[in-house]
């Protein structure tokens, strides 16, 4: 069993940057386009995803020896669906206003490819602690992506941040429109790619010296 050799911190940073679910892996894009209109939405959905990812990762890594290989995927699905139901019920009960804002997307976490993927490639091979940090990294990576998108769209679209009016006018209403989510992600991905090329080039040059 190829357990990970990375430290917890590396695992966390890996999810946050190198394998950022939104900008690098390009998984779970639907909410990133649909409801990243404000920072608040981003944080809330981020919390929900973080919860589901961490709890699912931990559950799977705890019971990994008891899972029959032939029902691996159904077990993952069941685990994820359970935790999604839990967070769905909790959010609906205690923060109804925010839950309304996120609409159907909380329940759609169940179909997020990113969570199943982490269970399959990481949690089922590693112990509880690394799985926990991997889940944290992925969850925070998702939240980070959502918040960045939300912040840009909220400032450009509404001239506000976290609901507080900071600019006093609306520079480009276009960015609030859901269609702008596609453009935003396209450009953010391009920026990530560009930074990566620069970084790699720099490293190569340093090596050459």
């Amino acid at each position: 069993m190829p357990a990970t050799t990375k430290t917890n911190k590396q695992l966390f940073v890996n999810g946050l940057l190198n394998e950022n679910p939104i900008f690098r892996l390009a998984l779970s894009m639907c909410p990133a386009v649909g409801i990243s209109t404000t920072v608040m939405n981003g944080i809330l959905l981020g919390v929900a995803v973080l919860f589901v990812q961490v709890f699912s990762s931990c559950t799977i890594s705890l019971i990994k020896h008891h899972i029959h290989p032939r029902i691996r995927i159904p077990t993952y699905t069941l685990t994820i669906a359970t935790w999604v139901t839990v967070i769905d019920l909790v959010l609906a009960a205690y923060v109804p206003a925010a839950y309304e804002a996120m609409g159907i997307f909380v329940r759609l976490i169940v179909a997020f490819a990113i969570i199943t993927m982490r269970l399959e490639v990481f949690a089922c091979k590693n112990d509880l602690v690394p799985s926990f940090w991997d889940g944290m990294g992925m969850g925070f990576g998702f939240m980070f992506g959502m918040v960045v998108l939300g912040a840009i769209r909220e400032i450009l679209g509404m001239g506000a941040l976290l609901g507080y009016d900071i600019l006093g006018f609306r520079p480009m209403l276009f960015f609030v429109l859901p269609a702008a989510g596609f453009f935003m992600i396209g450009f953010m991905m391009a920026i990530f790619n560009y930074v990566e090329t620069l970084y790699n080039r720099g490293r190569k040059e340093r090596k050459a010296i």
Partner: peptide
């Protein structure tokens, strides 16, 4: 442009379709 190849440009196109 190199940074846009692949997914990024696909997203921009999808944005145009959405509009």
């Amino acid at each position: 442009p190199e940074s846009f190849r692949g997914l990024p440009i696909a997203f921009v196109v999808a944005g145009l379709f959405a509009l």
